[in-house]
Amino acid sequence: MFDVLSRIMRTGILTETPAEDAQNSSAITDLQTDLRSILGRALCIRQVDAGSCNGCELEINALNNPYYNLEGLGIKFVASPRHADLLLVTGPVSVNMEEALKRTYDATPDPKFVVALGDCADCGCVFGRSYASRGGVANLIPVDYTILGCPPEPAAILKGILQVARSKHRAS
């Protein structure tokens, strides 16, 4: 136990302020206020891998590491689409995932946002459209925002998610 505590002490707090708000010291509070006024609570994300190579998933997982500390911002990943405000979809959408993606979309309560994550989710990228791939996510379900990259870096994913949340806020 002593070893665990001592390592926690030595590691310290690593969490960084999101880059876009680095100049603004109250950025995190603002963001949390924004999320609260949009949703009245945390932003809940359901991630759907609709056929990706797993590269995007690695970077999404990185958002939960202490540097990005996504939950500290009031954003969390949930286990069911029924609990989600936002679907974060990676792709290309394989034909074998088409039905599962559509059913996940239908199971997500309105109002919902869909973010297509990565170059493949945008257009199919190197996998294109074929007998096995439907290409980009927008070919199957409505997409609100696309985050490009192969894979996009965690900071870019975070920025994209925040932009979607804020644009929805402004629109309302």
Binding site: D49, P92, S94, V95, Y131, A132, S133
Partner: peptide
Amino acid sequence: LGYTHKGVGKR
């Protein structure tokens, strides 16, 4: 398995 089959052989 097979859900993420993207047809890479043909690609």
